[in-house]
Design a protein around this nucleic acid. Sequence first.
DNA 1: GGCTATTAGTAAAGGCCTTTACTAATAGCC
DNA 2: GGCTATTAGTAAAGGCCTTTACTAATAGCC
Lengths: 337, 337
Amino acid sequence: MPRATINDIARQAGVSPTAVSFAFNSPARLSTTTVERILAVARDMGYMPNPLSRGLVAGHVGVLGLIVPQALREIFANPFFATLQQGIGSVCDEHNLGLLTLSPQNNSLELAIARAPVDGFIIVGLNEQHHEVLPLRKRGIPFVIVDGDAEIAQSVNSADEESAYAAAAHLLEQGHREVLILAFDMPHRHLDNIFYGVGARRTWGYQRAFANYGVEWRDSWFLPTQGSVEGGAQRFAQALDEGYRPTAILTASDLIALGVLRAARQRGIQIPNDLEVIGYDDIPVAELVSPALSTVRQPIMEKGRIAGELLVAALSGDTGAERVVLAAELILRETTR
Amino acid sequence: MPRATINDIARQAGVSPTAVSFAFNSPARLSTTTVERILAVARDMGYMPNPLSRGLVAGHVGVLGLIVPQALREIFANPFFATLQQGIGSVCDEHNLGLLTLSPQNNSLELAIARAPVDGFIIVGLNEQHHEVLPLRKRGIPFVIVDGDAEIAQSVNSADEESAYAAAAHLLEQGHREVLILAFDMPHRHLDNIFYGVGARRTWGYQRAFANYGVEWRDSWFLPTQGSVEGGAQRFAQALDEGYRPTAILTASDLIALGVLRAARQRGIQIPNDLEVIGYDDIPVAELVSPALSTVRQPIMEKGRIAGELLVAALSGDTGAERVVLAAELILRETTR
DNA sequence: GGCTATTAGTAAAGGCCTTTACTAATAGCC
DNA sequence: GGCTATTAGTAAAGGCCTTTACTAATAGCC
């Protein structure tokens, strides 16, 4: 049994399809009794106007797209995204929008973007020059970049270089010289230069700190790490097995740091006495675990909220191109001395 | 500048719109050189076929809808939903689908459902008889109910009554007689009878335990509570102010229980010595906090995964109507003696 | 009672794409 | 060299809805 269409309702109610459309969209154009008759028939048959057709003629569907170059499963496991979505969600709530979360499809983010029935995109972790993003620019579809580089497009970022500098400087200041860095693993390697965006800025910050304190920078102590508790635990354990003996660790995210804590506990490494650890993000659990995690706090929810607001403004024709940079601060808890 | 359509590309490439469509969807129908010429023009103009039109003729858009009767902001703040979405997300990843999360729009969930450009729904916390759900049944749009009652539709639930019984029985067994229950606050009050689904089943379980242990059931000790840390903290503090002196507490969710822990700490109440607390869900933080939370573990991720799989099966024509009930178990940690 | 204004509705075009049925041209074959 | 088979494309219909321009009937008015 195929779904009832506007024509079925029209026939059943003895009116034209136009009248059915009016009953839903401009009931004032019809007499009250006709509107009621039409709506009663519609209710009877469970009819609702097809959102796709409606969107096609209206030019919008009331959905924001959130594009992330990681699997949905990982996104929803990551408190960073949960908090970011809270921020975006608060804007959606206000404007009666839905939030469509999208991952690569058949390993192609471009495909996912092309197929998305949305009014605009919030894109996390890509630059405006990425080949997935270019078509949007050419096509004039509104989007906002979060945690990525942008010269032309709108973007929201944190002060990554400064905060990375602060974290590294703190450890070097304490006299640490064997500092291991568990960095992002750049899920998005298809560009010639994988060194962009958040990862690049943080690395510059670290390197600047090392230079300032006269400490040699060793690429071999900079280890790309999968961004999860499991990933952090494994990478740290592996590093130990390979002979690394760090006295301090900087991680690209709190999740990775939590993994380090777990692996350290298993190996009997005392934190912060044997090893100091600084995470990044300040996700809610960071202060709940024991020892409480020292970390760099970035205003994630704010990031999402601003990104949402910029996008909503763009959807209603605002063509400004803001590039917002939010402050981040070092929070010292119990994984540092 | 309006967006390029298939006709613009056709004109520019000197072919018919049909040819452009073929270039994207069935390139074998065209010569290689033509396909390349068309795709080059498309790339140049940032053209991608409009997902709405495509969806309209294809009959599907590759998006699952997740419907929750709470604000998006709250959903993304709630680890229960994060884990549920992880489960659903793993199915989406596998089948190249997006996940559209939807909240009431203008206070109407029905409106949100009507406007959603999706292929099917996962509906959390409503019954199949709710007026929001009825049109989907009549219209034949596939959906799966999670944490709600269903006789006809597909559904995924936990063994709520049994696990609530077990939690209450454990406390009563220990001799507690002043047991406060911080229950769901039923955001969805529009039905005559607000007593349905998860909340109702758990309450039956509690009541059965009270009856079995010969303890009087007092409605006044059953307090609807907003499902967040803040909500739990406030409700508990308010109860104390009103003169309640519970020796044990059962909560509808771990978030509420975490709120109780926080408020208890502020008031100098020792847990578990002065007060035993049992949460519900076993969200990841439950075992990280101190004291670690005793709770009822339900397989949330599994719930999401199964709901996703049932829906995907329904989308490909599987008309079975499974009603899955997952086991839940009492986990005793440090908030019970 | 004849004119204008309003009310209640319809017909047709258009939003953007895909698919089916067709045509024209070339290739293959003995 | 004339037939069939294949290749490369096009025209037109159709997916479901909304909006614009129109018509017909009624109401209002002096």
